[in-house]
């Protein structure tokens, strides 16, 4: 579904991604871990071109997306993205946050979009918050709504960029729970996170990134029980 070839990206001369090639299949739940500054967020942000790679190719559903010819706005509809800091739109109500993109892009009529949004809100138990503004919600509620906002576009893949890092500890659970549900529904997911527990439980494959490269990968059981790479072992010993 997503194919990455020789991805290179640098900021002000610092190489952040150093030739990454990777393939992600439909239905996979890929979790990317690694120390901070390892390039894992940049890698994720390259997948929907929030960062433009300096070199390399990114293919999504059979189309190369980092070319001038590609209509990236159309591609992004199919790739949901969830941010560390939620990035809900503070000037819109919760309902409007969810319906804005589907209606603006004329994918759904207003009534249809609202009905869809309410169904999603009901699913996460926040239907009563439909008409409130984001600033009145807790961090966990905000992040769940941000996830639902992406889901309203009916994406083929969901990208998560450290979705629980900005949350108070007691709110991490509710967000991870929702992500697990999504995984169980068969959503293709790429998740950058520090939640090793989540990786063990949900991931079909775990990637370890450091220094702009993928140093090791594998199914979680093997990955966590028998890490081969020196730096991965070192990293795991610190976080576990």
């Amino acid at each position: 579904m997503i194919e990455v070839k020789g991805l290179v990206k640098s900021f002000d001369g610092n190489i952040v991604l150093n030739g990454i090639s990777e393939h992600i299949e439909k239905g996979e739940k890929v979790v990317i871990i690694g120390p901070s500054g390892s390039g894992k967020s940049t890698f994720l942000r390259c997948l929907n071109l929030l960062e433009t790679p300096d070199a390399g190719e990114i293919w999504f559903e059979g189309e190369q997306i980092n070319t001038k010819k590609c209509n990236i706005n159309r591609v992004r509809r199919k790739m949901g993205m969830v941010f560390q800091h939620f990035n809900l739109f503070p000037h819109l109500t919760v309902l409007q946050n969810i319906t804005l993109a589907p209606t603006l892009l004329k994918l759904q009529g207003k009534a249809e979009a609202e009905q869809n949004a309410k169904r999603l809100l009901a699913r996460i138990g926040l239907l009563d918050k439909a008409d409130t503004y984001p600033n009145m919600l807790s961090g966990g509620q905000k992040q769940r709504i941000a996830i639902v906002r992406s889901l309203a576009m009916n994406p083929d893949v969901m990208l998560f960029d450290e979705p629980t890092s900005a949350l108070d500890p007691e709110m991490v659970g509710e967000v991870l729970e929702l992500m697990k549900e999504l995984a169980d529904d068969g959503m293709t997911m790429v998740v950058v996170t520090h939640e090793i527990g989540f990786a063990r439980e949900v991931a079909t494959r775990v990637l370890f990134m450091d220094g702009g490269q993928i140093l090791e990968q594998g199914a979680p059981q093997i990955f966590f029980e028998n890490p081969e790479n020196e730096r991965l072992r070192d990293f795991l010993s610190k976080v576990l």
Binding site: R74, R76, M79, M81, F83, N87, F89, S150, M153
Partner: peptide, 22 residues
């Protein structure tokens, strides 16, 4: 916040739509 633009763009909105609506 730049995150607002990123959120808008990652939902598939164009640069103009993101600017104007968000």
């Amino acid at each position: 916040d730049i995150g607002q633009t990123e959120a808008g763009r990652s939902l598939g909105l164009s640069r103009l739509q993101t600017m104007w609506r968000i």
